[in-house]
């Protein structure tokens, strides 16, 4: 099939023009992201309902998280989004090294984020705050079970977010050698741009997770 379009490298056989191929790719990516929004909407609805039902327990649970770590990770993730923009800009201008450096930077910041996450999860495990049979609550006994619910959501939401990052970093590892060999040209770099959209989306999810998991207990709330 490639030989039918030998004159147009990178144009799939069923498209009439680069323009059509590009528009299809971006529309497809945005529809995929709409799908991702709905996937996360389940977790956010779950959070919303239990937050409404158990406001006090959620503040107590939130205070077990270290907001400074969350804030630091927010900065790291925003920086990774910026380096992703650099990679896309490089692809648009056909600057091979710029794509590679942008991807490396994104990988680096993504790696830092996940490393911090592993450290955080580890500390929750030590404090018996991982929901399930191992969970133990030594604080206010009247909210123990609802705090466990908070931690179910904490692990569910940050876990799904981290899973998306791991998948994204896996894809970037495949992209790196391709970028180095100059696969993407100013004419044909839909994959880089599409992947950029995915990475920014993952960033946006964290933008919502950070205040609603880490910060809700800061102001003292109704309990004190």
């Amino acid at each position: 099939m490639a030989d039918a379009h030998a004159h147009a490298p990178g144009l799939a056989h069923h498209f009439e023009s680069y323009e059509q191929q590009k528009e299809s790719a971006f529309l497809g990516m945005w529809i995929f992201l709409a799908q991702e929004i709905m996937f996360f909407s389940g977790l956010f609805t779950c959070y919303l309902v239990y937050r409404v039902l158990y406001p006090h327990a959620f503040l107590v649970g939130s205070r077990e998280l270290d907001w400074r770590i969350g804030a630091a990770n927010t900065v790291v993730l925003l920086l990774s989004s910026f380096t992703m923009v650099v990679a896309v800009l490089g692809a648009k201008q056909g600057r091979r090294k710029m794509i590679v450096l942008g991807l490396l930077g994104t990988l680096l910041f993504g790696g830092i984020f996940l490393g911090v996450k592993v450290f955080e999860y580890g500390s929750k495990w030590e404090h018996h705050l991982v929901p399930g049979p191992y969970f133990e609550w030594h604080g206010d006994p009247s909210v123990g079970r609802e705090v466990e619910l908070f931690f179910s959501l904490y692990f569910g939401m940050t876990g799904m977010h981290a899973l998306h990052m791991v998948i994204g970093m896996g894809i970037m590892l495949v992209m790196l050698p391709l970028a180095w060999r100059g696969k993407w040209t100013p004419q044909n770099h839909n994959f880089v741009e599409g992947f950029g959209l995915y990475w920014h989306f993952v960033d946006i999810v964290w933008i919502f997770l950070f205040p609603f998991l880490y910060l809700i207990g800061l102001s003292g709330g109704s309990s004190h």
């Binding site: 991702e36 996937f39 909407s41 779950c46 399930g132 619910l149 692990f155 569910g156 799904m160």
Partner: peptide, 23 residues
């Protein structure tokens, strides 16, 4: 728009059943 919500529902069910993480 609908299928991903079933997906997350089944993920939560799976976590609750297999790892006893209550949702």
């Amino acid at each position: 728009l609908g299928t991903p919500v079933l997906a997350i529902t089944l993920v939560l069910l799976f976590l609750e059943r297999v790892f006893q993480i209550g949702f």
